[in-house]
């Protein structure tokens, strides 16, 4: 509809230029704030304004992590990412499955409602000791923790999406004689791809919360372990560095979900 003509008018050129300038300005300040923050932190450390033993310092963090393979940081990242992905996939699959059951049967859904409300508001970390006793202190306990945190949210989010499917779409399918199964597979589920990805985006973060909490409690490896260990031996460089790496890992995993969404919904509408 808005085909660019061969010759762009002066006003259009000016408009495009302004748009570009606006974007550049935002990006510049985003980077500038980060650089400024790191610079002030570093200089304050150098000049002795802050105690680098407690607050650490960019150069010390960099030094700690200068040789990534030597202190096994890659392995720690790998462990955390692995646990998060397993928890995430399990949470998404199980959560969606449960949501389908609840959508299908109004009776089960009504009966389980108070339980879901309680489980949803319960801080799942409180279940930590129980989980450790039940599944053992190890990777599986961490994965169960991630699952516990992300599962109920997924169920509620997906169920809500299924229930708010366009009524008219469902009626249209019914006028052709569609069965409940057909209504689900051809209208409700494909109509909720957006909901699914929204819930995946929330989930990837929640799974990471669960994994870190689990690693605080039981692990021998992983970023959560590094943070706890660093804190216990008062190596703040290790703690700060791990937190920074963790935020990068979290952002990358979120971005991966966004990319997946773009690939799947490429056709949808535009």
């Amino acid at each position: 509809m808005y085909n660019e003509p061969q010759t762009i008018s002066k006003e259009r050129q000016l408009y495009l230029k302004r748009q570009k300038r606006g974007k550049q300005k935002v990006l510049f300040w985003q980077i500038a704030i980060l650089v400024l923050f790191l610079a002030v932190w570093e200089i304050a450390g150098q000049l002795g304004w802050i105690d680098t033993f407690i607050l650490s310092q960019p150069s010390r963090i960099l030094h700690t992590y200068a040789n990534l393979t030597q202190n096994g940081i890659l392995e720690h990242i790998g462990v955390t990412v692995y646990e998060t992905l397993v928890g995430f996939v399990l949470g998404a699959a199980l959560g969606t499955l449960l949501a389908i059951v609840l959508w299908w049967s109004g009776f089960i859904s009504k009966v389980s409602e108070p339980y879901l409300v309680v489980l949803n508001s319960l801080p799942k970390i409180a279940l930590g000791p129980v989980i450790i006793i039940w599944v053992g202190a190890g990777t599986s306990a961490i994965i169960v923790m991630a699952l516990a945190i992300s599962l109920i949210v997924t169920v509620l989010e997906m169920l809500n999406g299924f229930r708010s499917t366009n009524r008219e779409h469902i009626k249209m399918a019914r006028t052709f004689g569609a069965s409940k199964h057909q209504i689900f597979t051809k209208i409700v589920f494909p109509g909720n791809i957006k909901t699914l990805f929204n819930s995946l985006k929330i989930n990837i973060g929640l799974s990471l919360v669960g994994v870190i909490a689990g690693e605080f409690l039981v692990s021998k490896a992983g970023l959560g372990y590094l943070i706890v260990y660093g804190g216990q031996v008062f190596k703040l460089d290790l703690v700060m560095g791990s937190v920074i790496i963790l935020s990068v890992v979290a952002a990358l995993m979120y971005e991966a979900v966004v990319l997946l969404e773009k690939a799947v919904t490429r056709h949808y509408g535009r």
């Binding site: 366009n166 009626k171 249209m172 052709f176 051809k186 209208i187 494909p190 109509g191």
Partner: peptide, 25 residues
């Protein structure tokens, strides 16, 4: 049956939308 809105499914092409009733039946 024709409803108030066209209720075309936005994740299907026009051809796939038009074949929807046949697919259901």
């Amino acid at each position: 049956y024709m409803l108030q809105r066209d209720n075309l499914l936005e994740w299907r092409t026009i051809l796939k939308n038009i074949l929807f009733g046949l697919e259901i039946q």
